[in-house]
Design a protein around this nucleic acid. Structure first.
Lengths: 129, 129
DNA sequence: TTGTCTCGCGTACGCCTGTACGTGTAAATT
DNA sequence: AATTTACACGTACAGGCGTACGCGAGACAA
């Protein structure tokens, strides 16, 4: 997977839906977008076309209906996107962002428990010092 | 602080330096950029002008030297930026990003200790359940 | 069969972004 | 004084991005 052009914000939203609901028609993807994020059908179509051009999605014609599918794995795309952000906005350091997320955005009791477990798990893997 | 146009990637890098070194001339900011990220002097100048237009920075002339200063606080800008990303790429959920950062990017022993402390601190604040 | 609906697909368009160049002028150097 | 250096400031320009419109052709309804 060579250097793909980065996802734009709009493309991200559509890609996310693609991952979530799997392959689908433009209509399906349009319908699966969060209601409060009302994009025009044609806009979604454009984003999907661009996702394909950029290598993030593929498509095939099923009869007269074009079906899009994700081509890049979420983890990969998230890594690329987040790495870039961390680099530019945090000088490459991870912790400031983690801190921000926990302190500023807040996490509830469940999430806190999960985080605790995660920390312990990592702590075991990574032998002290 | 009304709705500012979002920072572009290039603007982010420059804004970060502005926060780090405080008010300074274009040259100072240019010099403070990570060496491996060599932008042209004139490019930095353009970004600073745009940062001012967007409301993220202010400037004054000191003799014939224009001095730029940050106008928006890092925390605020980071909140706006990260909120947007979390919304678009993670459907508004915080934990997937936290998990990604910890698991995929990895953190060293020191960071792990800090994270542990942070979790405990939050756990105390937020009474169980 | 004759609209009407639904899509695909090409096209559009203004603003944003990355990345500078060039000109004019003030300050510094020789 | 003449030359070089250093900036500010205006301008540029191609490609990306958000957000569609409109046409043409099957599919479906009447």
């Amino acid at each position: 997977m060579g250097p793909r052009p980065a996802l734009s914000k709009g493309e991200m939203e559509v890609a996310r839906v693609l991952w979530e609901i799997g392959p689908g028609s433009v209509r399906a993807i349009h319908a699966a977008l969060p209601a409060e994020r009302a994009m025009d059908f044609a806009t979604v179509q454009t984003y999907l076309r661009r996702l394909e051009t950029k290598g993030y999605a593929s498509s095939r014609l099923d009869k007269r209906l074009r079906i899009y599918a994700a081509r890049a794995k979420p983890r990969t795309v998230i890594r690329e996107t987040v790495d870039d952000l961390v680099e530019r906005l945090f000088g490459g350091e991870t912790m400031p962002l983690v801190r921000h997320l926990i302190e500023e955005r807040g996490i509830d009791a469940n999430e806190l428990a999960e985080l605790r477990a995660l920390v312990e798990r990592i702590a075991e893997q990574e032998p002290d010092q």
